[in-house]
Design a protein around this nucleic acid. Structure first.
Ligand SMILES: [Zn+2]
Length: 377
DNA sequence: AGCCTTTGACCAGCG
DNA sequence: TCGCTGGTCAAAGGC
């Protein structure tokens, strides 16, 4: 009696932009480009969902010009899009962390940090096929950002480019706790583990604990327990678990995401993600209200590029500037809609953070190494 | 008490 | 049909 909820929903799907499952196949946020590396983020998106595209094009650190490729490598689905980015040599993906980008999931609007975006980034090599990499269309009431978060959380921080591994085959690695692969804001219950042939380490299977939520994820690890790949299946049919009310351990009671365990998350990454995460949460402290988030590391300087933008806002042209609020740091970020592709949002960073992520913002932080990116026009 | 993980068994797809 | 493999179930035990 296997549930094939995933494929089941191929009914008439609502026209909501939905992130499709994805998996990350890169080295993690700290993966430093050892040369051009194509990263592909896949989304299932409705033709009209320009927002998704925006999310895809956010990684400013990617040396400027992310290319947007229509229905990229991922198979099936005409509504899957991919964006290709190139990580220049020496540039750490960590630079992506913390920058929010726009993302609109069906109903609400979520802010999406670079980590999240990053999470969507998938090495092309990973795109192939997998029954886990299924079509989207679920009657999604909300976009599933979980994958992103999970992904992110499973990122390792000490990952550095491994020259021996071709960028494209590089897989995500992680230092996460062995049993709790990624805390993505959703609650997961492990329902199985299996040693798969060809894999040194068992694959772990998790289900979202939310009632009636069909989402599952498969976590693959290497021998040393590092996560090598996480594959999501399905989409959450609910919002992120309410962080308030001391949700289960994986929730974030006070807005702080659980980062226990041997996580070694990059301060910037973590902070950014967590914060944005929080902002994403439908309700709760911080500024859930309208999610006028200051981004993970900066706050708006220009007009209101609130993460909770309205759709129509997205459609319109906007220029928005952000400035890092950290004293002495004058990193600025400019977010604008791509002229060439109205569905894209181009984020440009100027300057380099001279500090770690504010302690208050990440529960547990470590030292930052790969700091922010800098892509100056 | 409730939820979670563990783990062996079971099931389905495939060659 | 059989065996292999990957995915899931569900009882048992832990926290
Ligand atoms: Zn769910």
């Amino acid at each position: 009696m296997s549930e094939n909820e995933a494929s089941s929903s191929s009914s008439k799907a609502p026209i909501l932009p939905t992130i499709q499952n994805l998996f990350m196949g890169m080295g993690g946020p700290n993966r430093v480009g050892s040369g051009p590396m194509n990263l592909v983020s896949t989304f299932s998106s409705d033709p009209d969902s320009q927002l998704l595209a925006g999310a895809m094009t956010s990684p400013a650190p990617f040396s400027g010009t992310p290319q947007t490729a229509e229905s990229g490598g991922s198979r099936g689905s005409g509504n899957t899009q991919s964006s290709l980015f190139t990580i220049p040599p020496g540039l750490s993906l960590a630079g992506l962390l913390g920058s929010p980008l726009l993302f609109s999931p069906g109903q609400g609007h979520f802010g999406m940090s670079h980590q999240q975006a990053l999470a969507q980034v998938t090495a092309q090599a990973a795109l192939p096929h997998s029954q886990w990499h299924i079509q989207p269309d679920y009657p999604s009431s909300s976009t599933s950002l979980a994958p992103l978060f999970s992904q992110f959380q499973s990122l390792t921080l000490n990952a550095t480019a491994n020259p021996e591994i071709p960028p494209n085959v590089m897989k995500e690695t992680s230092d996460l706790a062995v049993d709790k692969p990624a805390d993505d804001g959703y609650n997961w219950r492990k329902y199985g583990q299996k040693v798969v042939k060809g894999s040194e380490y068992a694959h772990c299977y998790y289900k979202c604990t939310h009632p009636n939520c069909p989402v599952k994820k498969k976590v693959e690890r290497s021998l040393d327990g590092q996560v090598t790949e996480i594959i999501y299946k399905g989409q959450h049919n609910h919002q992120l678990p309410q962080p308030n009310k001391c949700s289960k351990e994986s929730g974030n009671p006070n807005g702080t995401y659980r980062l226990q365990g041997p996580f070694e998350l990059n301060p910037e990454g973590v902070a950014g993600t967590l914060r944005n995460f929080k902002d994403n949460a439908p309700s709760h402290s911080l500024k859930m209200k309208d999610q006028e988030s200051e981004s993970s590391e900066g706050e708006e300087v220009g007009d209101a590029e609130t993460i909770a933008n309205r759709n129509d806002e997205h459609k319109s042209k906007r220029r928005s500037y952000y400035k890092c609020t950290s004293q002495g740091c004058n990193v600025r970020k400019h977010v604008e809609r791509s002229a060439s592709d109205p569905k894209a949002v181009v984020t440009t960073y100027k300057g380099k953070h001279n500090h770690d992520v504010p302690a208050a913002r990440n529960s547990s932080q470590h030292t930052s190494n790969n700091s922010v990116s800098h892509t100056t026009p």
